[in-house]
Design a protein around this nucleic acid. Structure first.
Length: 270
DNA sequence: CGCGACTCCTGCCGGC
DNA sequence: TGCCGGCAGGAGTCGC
């Protein structure tokens, strides 16, 4: 479900309710997530005071005095604030009850999300090999070009690989490639440095604009404050098969690439 | 190692 | 109206 902008929107929405508060109790109703929630996680976090709510890739990091909760929203996950005691729905798997009388609720119908706890979250096996943050200065066209040497995989799959760069999911991969004028099937190793420099810029640009817009709500994404993201109306190609390209007016094409739907303009992207 | 296919799970939408 | 197939915003893992 969420890509980096949606995770960031969620993080910003929930952070004010968490930071400076303490955890009264962690309630886990369903441990069978992408990975089973480890026994004892709730005991480890009970009574902890929450210091900051950060993010690495698509992981929300809730840093506390007793360790960091590492939360991934998967495809269908969401987090939001409820009043303590609000009845839980069937897919409300985790509540982090706060001393304030509020609770952070994690809902995830498909259970592709995950919850871990670690004292050294950045060294966790799921995080330690991740690529750079796309909005950091370390993420450049030069970096992408270097990583792409000899690679034959399609560039769309390449930029969606978390070990290459994090946070670029299926929507924004199509969008960034459109903005950069690059065909999604082009071999990653056959894109010039110049075009990678343009692509790094468009990735940063589309992610930043989406964050400003509160993310993209396709079905049911709502930020931590319950508001729908309104970036959908800014999407140039994603979900627009057959509609007019905003540059050249030709019909947008849809293909499947690496089992994922992919949208592009065959006139504007080469 | 690189690459492509497969997998986890539930909900929703469009077509018949 | 109701049923069914296909598809969905992620990403680790496996086999070649």
């Amino acid at each position: 479900m969420p890509e980096l902008p949606e995770v960031e929107t969620s993080r910003c929405g929930i952070a004010p309710y968490l930071e400076g508060h303490s955890i009264r109790e962690v309630i886990i109703r369903e441990r069978r997530l992408r990975w089973p929630v480890s026994a004892g996680l709730e005991q480890q976090l009970a009574g902890a005071s929450i210091e900051t709510v950060g993010r690495r890739a698509k992981y929300i990091l809730i840093n506390t005095s007793q360790g960091t909760a590492i939360l991934h929203l998967g495809m269908s996950g969401s987090v939001f604030i409820v009043d303590s005691g609000t009845p839980a729905g069937v897919h409300d798997h985790v509540d982090i009850e706060l001393s304030s009388g509020k609770a952070l609720r994690f809902r995830d119908p498909r259970r592709f999300g995950s919850l871990h706890c670690s004292r050294t979250p950045l060294e966790h096996p799921l995080l330690v090999n991740l690529g750079p943050e796309p909005l950091n200065d370390a993420f450049t066209g030069q970096y992408l070009w270097q990583r792409a040497r000899g690679r034959k995989v399609a560039i769309k799959q390449f930029i969606m690989t978390p070990q290459v760069v994090v946070g670029v999911g299926n929507i924004y991969a199509s969008e960034a490639l459109f903005m950069a004028g690059i065909h999604p099937k082009r071999a990653a190793g056959k894109v010039s440095l110049l075009r990678y420099e343009r692509l790094a810029k468009t990735i940063k640009d589309v992610l930043q604009r989406a964050i400003k817009a509160g993310g993209t709500t396709l079905r049911d994404f709502y930020g931590g404050t319950g508001e729908a993201g309104y970036f959908k109306q800014e999407l140039a190609v994603y979900g627009r098969e057959g509609e007019a390209c905003r540059n050249c007016k030709n019909a947008i094409t849809a293909i499947v690439l690496g089992q994922r739907s992919t949208f592009y303009c065959k006139v504007c992207q080469r």
